[in-house]
Structure formats: structure tokens, C-alpha cells
């Protein structure tokens, strides 16, 4: 990348004034306020939240539409391309740190708080002597019993699906680089299908857990970390899938050239990131 004596576009692309950011701010403001009201059972909260969300969708279409148009018009030179790469990399780093917070909570519960409550320390002796815990817990000091999740059922299948999807996506990328547009389209389509299957299976898994295993958000530290980690991951898969669908649409319209296709690459990076998070999840949430 352009570090020491790299590229200097004589005319770095600076976008024109745009209405999208402020639209996005209004959207998020409505969502924040709406959610706060809704969670406290104040009348219109839910509708404010939904309105905000609708505005957000509109903003995303508008903003990314502009970006795609600018990209197609060839306004993004090499230096802009480098900026986009740095930008996306740092964004993914921020996502890593977001997940790190929840993994931190998981490890803390497993290594510190549950043992302390469950089998050693004065805390156990004096306050919770009836609570005996090993991870994964199937009860909490004061929560209803539940069944922890098994690793080698749907989760294992989902692992296989995501790993495969990483491979098909790379295959699509090769196709793009080598100018084989059919590879690109087929590879992307398969990846999208795999992403959708993952989501479907996860929905089934959640349904099963909630109704038959009594595993709820309120099921102690286990339930909380389980749903929050897999839930945020699932949301990321959803976003990644939408990104890939967009890329598929663009591929079908003939966007991207073997040299210029950062939109595609960004989506791919994101997808691989989501993939890696899942692997860590699989190991520490489901398996060990």
C-alpha cells in the first residue's frame, strides 16, 4: 500500500456535498429515541423506531447507489482505491473489537464468575452454597433450568456450510480476476445460497433451543453469552449475505473489471471475517 512514497493522485476524488449522512443521522436518532421509548412501554416508541429504520434503509440505498455510480464512472483512482482498502480493514478491526467485548464476557463468566459462585470462594460458601456449577451451566444460582447447546448437530453443519462458502467465494473471485464472468456469477450465487442456508439453520436451532430446551436470553450467563454472541454473529451473516447479493446483482449487470472490483473484495473480506468469528464461536461457545 501507499506507505512511504506511494501514489499521489493529482486529483483525489472528493465527493460533492451529500444529503445522505444527515438522513442517516436522523434515522439513527429516531431509532435510538424510538427504541428507548419502546423498551419503556411509551406509546409511539415502536413506530418511531420503525420509521427510523425505514429512513436508514432509504439512506443506505441512496448512499451506496452514489458510491456505485461514482465507481462505475471511473472516479475512484488508485489512491482512492488504497483509501478504501485501509478504510475497510480498519472497519473490520473495529468489528473484531466489538466481538472481543462479548468473548471477554464469555471467558470471564467461564473462568471467573461461574466458578466463584459455583464451587469455591466465600461467595460460594456464604451466599450460594446450593449452587454447583460446571461450564456449560444448565442452571444459574437463581434462574430456571435449561439445556445447554450441543456442538455436533446443526452447529457443526453450519460450520461446514460457512467454510464451504468461504471457498466458493474465493473461487468466484478467481473467476473475476481471470475474466471468467460465469465463474464469478455462479460462485457468488452459490455463496449467497450457502449464507441463506446458514441463516435458516440458525433460525431452526434458535427455535428448538427456545421452545424445547428452555434456553432463553434469561438463562443465566450461559444463555446471555450464547444468544448475544451467536445473535450478533447471525446479524453479521445477514449483512454479509445482503452485501453478496448486491455484488451478485452488480456482477449480473456487468460491473467490476479484473483490475477494479473493490466493492466485491470488501464484501469478500467481510465474509471471511464473519467466517473466522464463527470458527472461534464454534470452538468456545458450542464445543469446549
Amino acid at each position: 500500500m501507499n506507505v512511504e512514497n506511494g501514489i499521489h493522485d493529482p486529483h483525489y476524488f472528493v465527493p460533492a456535498p451529500s444529503r445522505w449522512p444527515i438522513v442517516g443521522s436522523i434515522a439513527l436518532f429516531c431509532m435510538g429515541m424510538g427504541a428507548a421509548f419502546w423498551m419503556n412501554d411509551v406509546g409511539a416508541g415502536k413506530y418511531v423506531l420503525l420509521t427510523g429504520f425505514a429512513i436508514l434503509i432509504w439512506m443506505i440505498f441512496g448512499w451506496f447507489g452514489d458510491v456505485i455510480r461514482e465507481a462505475q464512472a471511473g472516479q475512484y483512482g488508485t489512491q482512492v482505491d488504497h483509501s478504501l482498502r485501509w478504510g475497510m480493514s480498519w472497519f473490520i478491526f473495529s468489528e473484531v473489537m466489538f466481538f472481543a467485548a462479548f468473548f471477554g464476557a464469555l471467558f470471564y463468566a467461564r473462568v471467573i464468575s461461574v466458578p466463584e459462585l459455583g464451587f469455591f470462594s466465600h461467595t460460594h460458601d456464604l451466599l450460594w452454597h446450593n449452587f454447583n456449577a460446571v461450564w456449560p451451566t444448565s442452571t444459574g444460582p437463581k434462574v430456571d433450568p435449561y439445556q445447554p447447546m450441543e456442538a455436533f448437530g446443526l452447529p457443526a453443519i453450519n460450520t461446514a456450510i460457512l467454510l464451504t462458502s468461504g471457498a466458493t467465494l474465493t473461487w468466484a473471485h478467481w473467476g473475476l480476476v481471470e475474466g471468467k464472468r460465469d465463474h464469478l456469477k455462479i460462485g457468488l450465487a452459490i455463496t449467497v445460497l450457502l449464507g441463506l442456508s446458514f441463516l435458516t439453520l440458525q433460525a431452526i436451532e434458535y427455535h428448538h433451543a427456545w421452545t424445547e430446551m428452555s434456553l432463553h436470553l434469561a438463562s443465566g450467563a450461559y444463555g446471555a453469552t450464547f444468544y448475544m454472541l451467536t445473535g450478533f454473529h447471525g446479524m453479521h451473516v445477514l449483512v454479509g449475505t445482503i452485501m453478496l447479493i448486491t455484488m451478485l446483482g452488480r456482477a449480473l449487470r456487468g460491473h467490476f473489471t479484473p483490475k477494479h472490483h473493490f466493492g466485491f473484495e470488501a464484501a469478500a473480506w467481510y465474509w471471511h471475517f464473519v467466517d473466522v468469528v464463527w470458527l472461534i464461536l464454534f470452538v468456545f461457545v458450542y464445543w469446549l
Binding site: L117, S121, H122, T123, L126, L127, P141
Partner: peptide, 8 residues
Amino acid sequence: AIPGFIRD
């Protein structure tokens, strides 16, 4: 003094 825990 932390609710649910004993410190000394």
C-alpha cells in the same frame, strides 16, 4: 461491597 459476591 458487591451484590451477590463476598469480598474481604
